[in-house]
Simulated scan of single mutants.
Amino acid sequence: MQFLFLGDVVGEMGMQLVARYLPALKKEFKPQVTIVNGENTTKSGRGITQKLFKDLMKAGADVVTLGNHAWNNQEIFSFIDQTPNLLRPLNYPGQDVPGHGWTQLNVNGTQVAVINLQGRVFMEATDDPFAAIDQLVTELQAANVNVIFVDFHAETTSEKKALGLFLDGRVSAVVGTHTHVQTNDPQVLAHGTGFLTDAGMTGPATGVIGMEYQPVIQKFLTARPNRFAVQTTGAGILSGCVVNVDAHTGRAKKVRTILIDQDHPYQNV
């Protein structure tokens, strides 16, 4: 079983890259499940709208995950409860959190769970991601759901790797998002969990993690607040990964990264 995953889609350019390349990538890799992180898809780079969610699904996503910008666009509260394949982090605090932190798919008779989780180090306060995922995975395993994919939206490499090792052998894959920089560590951990610290981003390549670089530099120079805007011109980048999983055992066989940019052109479009 193949999982195709695209890292944080940023702004209009990110959406254009998804529309252009995702159908071709699906044709090449033939994934059974395609997951896209869409928490930065709006023009401002913060949040998602119902139209953007539908556009990602139309381009080929089966599940759209979010992260710390899930609530930045108020429109989400009008539709997230009715869209089980749009996931906000499982460990958001509160008793009546809108939406869903995970979803279950039937893939040719195999039950597959996709989970969205958010880290706590250098991030907004949330409930403990380790405790939340531990409880849910225990429940899924009791229900004989062995194929489990986790998008861990977190800042630090240490927290992401720690979660991967914590879940090693219990889930099929842990793939990190949020930093917008693809890491060079695709691997299968000792007990069969596929792992990648960060899938990277899909969007403008010439700014600072998708934003125009001049305001960012000014903030570093002056230590004063500045208004950031998504880069809308220049080259683009598409980042993600493919995880091959044994559908019977839920163990990963291989993790490989996907990178499309000026230095790594994609020929199959």
Rank of each mutant, 00 (worst) to 15 (best):
A131W: 07
N106M: 14
P129G: 05
G94C: 14
V114K: 00
P84N: 08
T83E: 13
M123I: 05
Q82W: 03
L86S: 10
M123F: 04
V112P: 00
N108A: 12
L87D: 03
L117N: 03
F77C: 09
A132S: 15
R88A: 02
E75D: 13
M123D: 06
D134R: 09
D128A: 04
A113C: 15
N91A: 11
N116F: 01
I80Q: 02
N108Q: 08
A132L: 11
N106E: 13
N116E: 02
T110Y: 13
I115V: 10
V112L: 04
T126L: 10
I80M: 11
Q118M: 12
L86W: 07
Y92T: 00
A125S: 14
R88G: 04
N85H: 09
P93F: 02
F130S: 01
G109K: 12
V112Y: 02
D81W: 10
L86N: 11
L136A: 08
Q74W: 13
G99T: 02
I76L: 13
I133M: 00
H100P: 05
A125H: 12
Q118L: 07
P89N: 09
G94V: 08
L117R: 03
G101M: 05
P93L: 03
Q111G: 14
N91K: 13
Q74C: 13
Q135D: 15
V97H: 07
A131Y: 08
T103I: 05
R88C: 04
Q95V: 12
P98M: 11
S78M: 12
N91D: 06
T110P: 14
V114I: 14
T126I: 07
